[in-house]
Design a protein around this nucleic acid. Structure first.
Length: 194
DNA sequence: TAGGCCATCTGGTCCT
DNA sequence: AGGACCAGATGGCCTA
């Protein structure tokens, strides 16, 4: 059970914190399974059953760092941590909502599974580049971007092995689709092909 | 079963 | 001071 390995900073300060931390965990798990699950079912979001890293945090949070003592109680700290967790969850949910909206406006070849985040960002970038090229062409200027090199470098930077091949192929298809669609029908630049 | 993707927790840092 | 942002860690789910 990872929660027993918890090394929260307040452990140094109060003896009863460990017990309270376990209570916090139980409370968290219960809440995930009950009150929050209903709203998550509505949005289809996955939820973790257990908490995150016990030894998480940056490497800079090593043993030499002395944390400032505060006068707030362990219970108060726990409460603030819970509130902070909740805010972070909401922040990530809003970020994911933004990704979802981005997926909806990016023309791409429809797949059984939805685009991953990295694919979404890469396609969005490529789409912007394709649109920029169209604008340049309409103005009689040189194209700003070429795709083949960029796709290769971007994919290799982020994804490897089989996924790279699959993603590169798919991105190339999408890029070709962008170019063909934009060149033959520049008036349809916002057509969503999903 | 390994690897990719993801959600969540967590503590540090930045910003208001 | 408190919230937002960020990155590391971890475990669950899914697919090849």
């Amino acid at each position: 059970m990872r929660s027993l390995e918890m090394t929260a900073p307040w452990h140094e300060e109060e003896e009863d914190v460990e017990v309270e931390e376990m209570e916090l965990r139980k409370h968290n798990d219960g809440r995930d399974d009950l009150t929050e699950s209903s709203s998550d079912e509505a949005t289809g979001r996955k939820r973790r059953k257990h908490g995150g890293s016990a030894s998480s945090g940056s490497a800079s949070s090593g043993t030499t760092i002395r944390r400032r003592k505060t006068c707030i109680s362990a219970r108060e700290r726990n409460l603030r941590r819970l509130e902070s967790n909740e805010r972070e969850r909401m922040r990530m949910h809003s970020l994911n909502d933004a990704f979802e909206q981005l997926r909806e406006v990016i023309p791409h070849i429809k797949m059984e599974r939805k685009l991953s985040k990295i694919e979404t960002l890469t396609l969005a970038k490529n789409y912007i580049m394709a649109l920029t090229n169209v604008i340049c062409e309409m103005r009689g200027e040189e194209k700003h971007y070429t795709f083949v090199q960029d796709v290769e470098s971007d994919s290799n930077a982020e994804i490897d092995t089989n996924t790279t091949e699959e993603t590169s192929t798919r991105e190339q298809n999408n890029n070709n689709m962008y170019q063909q669609n934009l060149e033959s029908h520049p008036e349809n630049t916002m057509v969503n092909s999903r």
